[in-house]
Amino acid sequence: MVAAGLYLKRFYTVVRGEVLVLPSRIIVALFFLVLLGMPLISQNPYLIRVIVLASIFAILAASWDLLSGFTGQMNFGHALFFGVGAYASAMLNVHLHIPPWGSVPLGAAAAVMTGLIVGIPCLRLKHTYLALTTMAFPIILMGIVFALPDLTGGELGISGLQRISNSLIVNYYIYIGIMLVLCTIMWKITDSHTGIIFHAIREDELAVKASGINTTRYKLMAFCLSGFFAGIAGGLYAHYMRIAGPSTLEVSMSFMVVIWAVFGGIATIYGPIAAVFILFPLLEFVRFWPEYRTLIFAVVVLLILLYMPEGLIPWVRDKIEKECPRCKIRNVATRKTCRVCTAVLD
């Protein structure tokens, strides 16, 4: 009892000292709480569906940001990893009867292998050339899918996949839990030593090489890591939809990921996640005006990019928080002095 009280006191101290000091951290904490508490407020299957799908796409968008945002390896064919994850999970589940807890990680492993295969020829390419080359890969895979209809189901895809859980709420918590864990891992990666090297490669690869760092290894690692997370998203999507079809490899899927990331803010991880949780429900919300749904979506994205070129979330963050010019610690915008070094903020 005493130990529990001590833990609670320590938890409160951490929350007060680390979370409540910054509005962005409060928002993230609220996001976690709202997602985890949603079934207590409403168990509407439509709402749950929208949140679950947004969670899957949030993993996908964040995985793109890890590769293209942080490492600067501009990937316009991210649907490849998503599609490989979806198809591999579907084939393992339907043809070999491997349950979802096995098929999803194995699908992600297949996506990692794909990341390696795609990454090697892409190492020599940069900028536009890299973007165009990566765009070709999902199209090639789609050709393979159509060429092997007995295995892949051709244009019909592979249907009849097993659900992760038959309970709406259990399913919800599994998807939300996986999303929160994976996105936190991605965020921690970008905050780690490896993440700093990823960032440095994007800024000046030559300088990183000159520092004795094997950039080839790190770039391949970025492809594999991104492939892993996108592959998990693909596997989860296939099991949720109960079908893995050619639409998972379509060019529009690749571009949607880029739109989410750019809208939310590149090289942030949380930006693309927030963007998915804004844009995906927005598309559902404007169903009352079906003829103009896509137009409304496009106008919203254009306006945001026009007035907030760095993305929505960095813009909001800069409005509510200030960075200390001396110690680089972030402070709430209303403060006059830094909360750590007491330097004047304005």
């Binding site: 509407n44 299957p45 929208v50 799908l53 639409s247 749904r293």
Partner: peptide, 22 residues
């Protein structure tokens, strides 16, 4: 219910879920 299925299969399933539950 607009399924938008030529462009987005996910949209189609959301439209169907909406028909069923909303």
């Amino acid at each position: 219910a607009d399924s938008n299925e030529f462009l987005n299969v996910t949209d189609a399933t959301n439209a169907m879920e909406r028909l069923m539950t909303q």
